[in-house]
């Protein structure tokens, strides 16, 4: 595994709908990648639900998905870390 320092956090902030408050609770619906998978920037890696709307969360960078912090059914708000990707 790459060093933890340069890991890039995956958050829902980039896809958070404008009309939804930052501290609204979203829920992780599906993960499409497992830890250890090499993901491409922009590839949908998970799906969350906020206020009944389903939203795809893309990988922020190309690299290895090293840690999933919030699994399926976990709750999150706008800035919470869903996972980490080690770029490369």
């Amino acid at each position: 595994m790459s060093g933890t320092d340069d890991r890039v956090a995956v958050a829902a902030s980039g896809v958070w709908p404008e009309d939804v408050e930052d501290d609204e609770t979203a829920v992780v619906v599906n993960w499409f990648a497992r830890e250890g998978r090499r993901v491409e920037e922009g590839e949908t890696i998970c799906e969350i639900q906020i206020e009944k709307v389903s939203i795809d969360v893309p990988a922020p960078v190309t690299g290895e998905l090293v840690a999933i912090e919030r699994g399926e059914d976990a709750e999150l708000t706008r800035e919470d870390v869903l996972a980490y990707v080690a770029p490369g």
């Binding site: 499409f32 990648a33 290895e64």
Partner: peptide, 18 residues
């Protein structure tokens, strides 16, 4: 893991997406 091995950690899909 090599890049290829990492990519082979398979992508999973829901039935609707498949």
């Amino acid at each position: 893991m090599s890049e290829q091995e990492q990519r082979a950690v398979e992508r999973e899909l829901t039935m609707s997406r498949a």
